[in-house]
């Protein structure tokens, strides 16, 4: 019960309370750039959710087994090389380089795979895939996972793969929700008479501010839920 409770908390936290776009401001570029039509926004959201899950899986694996201080694989190699050494190997200085490499190559792989085996799917969201490499939402999810794996002070607090995947998938769903809502509003906004200076990105940002205001209403839900699960 306790583990399921904490998973639900992470899921709701990532999707609603601390929505990636409206609370952490990551993934703003596609949020403004690709939110003109609902179907395109939905395609972008799906692509991001897909890539974010793969990147989270890979980055958790790398962080847990290789990069963090005292990680199993690195320690084993170090012991084979220097059996009498007391040093705990710590490769966390390579974190960022490894993450960006993982993201770039997984995007490339996903693109090739989808183009070969699901041409219809590729037609609907393939154009967004290269853009995703520089989408901060993906790197942000990797960094959050890193914070809870190599940054955890207490060994019992280290996140398992389940928590990492839940954070990534629901973070992606939260992104999809935000970008689809935004696209719906912008389709209506096209009918309106917006002052000339505010047209384009400016009015989009102000609308996003009002959306963020609505999402602010979710704050505190996590504390109530945490009390419920205890």
């Amino acid at each position: 019960m306790e583990t399921i409770g904490s998973l639900i908390l992470i899921a709701i936290g990532a999707a609603l309370i601390n929505n990636f776009v409206l609370h952490y401001f990551v993934g703003i570029c596609p949020f403004i750039g690709v939110s003109r039509r609902v179907d395109m926004a939905f395609g972008m959201g799906c692509a991001v959710t897909f890539v974010i899950s793969i990147a989270a899986f890979l980055s958790w694996t790398f962080t847990y087994f290789i990069l963090r201080a005292g990680a199993p694989v690195t320690s084993w190699i170090w012991h084979v090389l220097r059996p009498d050494s007391e040093l705990v190997p710590d490769l966390s200085i390579l974190n960022y380089i490894v993450y960006i490499f993982v993201i770039a190559s997984s995007v490339q792989l996903v693109e090739m795979y989808v183009r070969k085996f699901f041409p219809a799917l590729y037609k609907s969201f393939g154009v967004f895939l290269p853009l995703i490499t520089t989408n901060c939402a993906i790197l942000f999810a990797c960094l959050e996972i890193m914070k809870h794996v190599s940054g955890a002070s207490d060994p019992s607090q280290v996140w398992g793969l389940d928590k990492a995947l839940v954070l990534a998938i629901f973070g992606g769903l939260g992104f999809t929700l935000a970008i689809v809502m935004m696209a719906g509003i912008r389709e209506e906004l096209d009918q309106c008479d917006v002052p000339k200076a505010l047209r384009g990105p400016a009015i989009t940002l102000i609308t996003a501010g009002i959306l963020a205001l609505a999402f602010l209403g979710f704050s505190g839900v996590d504390r109530g839920l945490a009390a419920l699960f205890q």
């Binding site: 940002l205 996003a208 501010g209 963020a212 205001l213 602010l216």
Partner: peptide, 24 residues
């Protein structure tokens, strides 16, 4: 509100509008 997330979006939106207006 201004130091919370909504303030960021609204401030940037309005400043962007101001810059566009001045440029025009």
């Amino acid at each position: 509100l201004m130091v919370l997330p909504p303030g960021a979006f609204i401030t940037l939106g309005l400043l962007l509008g101001l810059v566009n207006w001045l440029t025009a």
